[in-house]
C-alpha cells in the first residue's frame, strides 16, 4: 500500500507532476531567453511560458464543425497523463529511484511514443487539411526516429545486463546503479555510437527546428495544433514541456548518471546536466539550423542515427 502511495506521489509531485511541469516550463523560458540573447535581443521574461499557460486558460475553446468533438478535446489529456507517468519512471541519481514495479526502460519507450501518437490523432480529429499534413509528417518522422531509439535502449540494456552477468536488463535502477559502480557509458568507447545516435534522436523527439516538420508554423501553420485554442492548447504546451524533461532525463539516466551521493549534490549535478543538454542540444541547434524537408529528415534518420545505433548494438554484443 505504501508502495502505491509512493508511486502516486512520484507521478503527481516529484519527479513527475508539479515538479516536472514547473521545471519543463522554466527550461522553455530559459531557452527562449538565451535564444533572444544570442540574437542580441532582450527576450521575454524567464517566466513567459507560465504566463502563456495562464493566458490560454482565459481563452475560449473553439471546436471546428468538421472535428470529432470527443476525440478532439480529450486526446491531449491522454498525452499529458502519459508524460506525467513517464516523468515518474526516470531516475535521478541519488535523489530519486523509481519503484521497481514501474522503473522499466521498455515501459518508458512505449510512453515516449504517446505524445507523437496524440499529435497524430489530434491532427486528424480536427478535420483540418493542415492537421492531416501534420499527421502524415509526424508519422514519417516517428517511424524514422523510433527505430534508432529502440536500438539505443537495447544497446544500453545489453551492456548493463552482460556487465551484471546476465543478458539484458531493462530496469532503469539497475542501469543507473551499474554505471555508478563501473563508470558512465559516456566515457565507455564501446557506447559512443549509441551516445551519438541519442544526440541525433532527442532534438527530433522534442520537436525543435531542424525536426519540427509536423508543426512547422510557416508551412503548415502548426499542423495538428492549428485548430486548437484556449485551455486545450495549453494541454499541448504542458505535454511538450513534460516531454522535454522526460527525454533529457532519460538521456542522463542512460549515459551519464554519475553524481555524488546525497540529495542536494545529486540534484545540483542533475540540474547542470539538464542545462548543458538543453543549451547545446536544443537552443544552439534550434538557432543555427533551418528546417529540413520531411524527406530529408527521414533519409537523415535512416542513414546516420540508425547506422550508429545498429553499430553500437553490434559492438556491444560482440565486445
Amino acid at each position: 500500500m505504501s508502495n502505491q502511495i509512493a508511486i502516486l506521489l512520484a507521478v503527481l509531485l516529484f519527479p513527475g507532476g508539479v515538479f516536472a511541469l514547473a521545471f519543463g516550463l522554466a527550461m522553455k523560458g530559459v531557452d527562449r531567453r538565451v535564444a533572444a540573447r544570442l540574437q542580441s535581443r532582450v527576450g521575454p521574461p524567464l517566466l513567459q511560458p507560465f504566463f502563456d499557460i495562464i493566458k490560454l486558460g482565459f481563452k475560449r475553446t473553439m471546436v471546428p464543425a468538421a472535428a470529432n468533438e470527443t476525440v478532439f478535446l480529450y486526446t491531449p489529456l491522454v498525452g499529458v497523463v502519459a508524460m506525467l507517468v513517464a516523468a515518474a519512471l526516470v531516475p535521478i541519481t541519488s535523489v530519486y529511484a523509481p519503484d521497481a514495479a514501474i522503473g522499466n526502460l521498455l515501459v518508458l519507450l512505449y510512453l515516449l511514443m504517446i505524445p507523437g501518437i496524440v499529435l497524430m490523432i489530434a491532427g486528424s480529429a480536427s478535420g483540418s487539411p493542415y492537421g492531416a499534413i501534420g499527421f502524415s509528417r509526424e508519422m514519417a518522422l516517428m517511424i524514422a526516429y523510433e527505430g534508432p531509439l529502440v536500438l539505443i535502449a537495447a544497446a544500453v540494456a545489453i551492456r548493463t545486463g552482460m556487465g551484471m552477468g546476465g543478458w539484458a536488463t531493462f530496469s532503469l535502477n539497475d542501469i543507473v546503479a551499474y554505471q555508478q559502480a563501473h563508470g558512465s557509458f559516456l566515457f565507455d568507447p564501446v557506447m559512443w555510437p549509441a551516445v551519438a545516435a541519442f544526440c541525433f534522436f532527442y532534438p527530433a523527439n522534442v520537436g525543435i527546428v531542424p525536426f519540427d516538420i509536423p508543426e512547422a508554423e510557416t508551412e503548415v501553420l502548426e499542423g495538428p495544433l492549428l485548430e486548437y485554442s484556449g485551455p486545450v492548447l495549453a494541454l499541448f504546451k504542458i505535454m511538450s514541456a513534460l516531454k522535454k524533461v522526460v527525454v533529457l532525463g532519460l538521456g542522463i539516466a542512460l549515459f551519464f548518471p554519475a553524481a555524488p551521493a546525497g540529495i542536494v549534490g545529486g540534484f545540483l549535478v542533475w540540474l547542470v546536466k539538464m542545462a548543458v543538454m538543453m543549451l547545446v542540444g536544443i537552443t544552439a541547434v534550434r538557432l543555427s539550423m533551418g528546417r529540413m524537408r520531411i524527406d530529408q529528415a527521414f533519409v537523415f534518420f535512416l542513414k546516420w542515427p540508425l547506422l550508429l545505433a545498429v553499430a553500437s548494438l553490434a559492438v556491444v554484443v560482440v565486445v
Binding site: R41, G43, D52, K55, T218, L221, E222, Y228, L233
Partner: peptide
C-alpha cells in the same frame, strides 16, 4: 524586439489574442 512584452507571432488564427 517585442518578445520583451511576451508577444509571439503565431501561425494559426486560433492561437491569437
Amino acid at each position: 524586439d517585442i518578445e520583451r512584452l511576451g508577444c509571439q507571432y503565431c501561425g494559426s488564427p486560433k492561437h491569437a489574442d
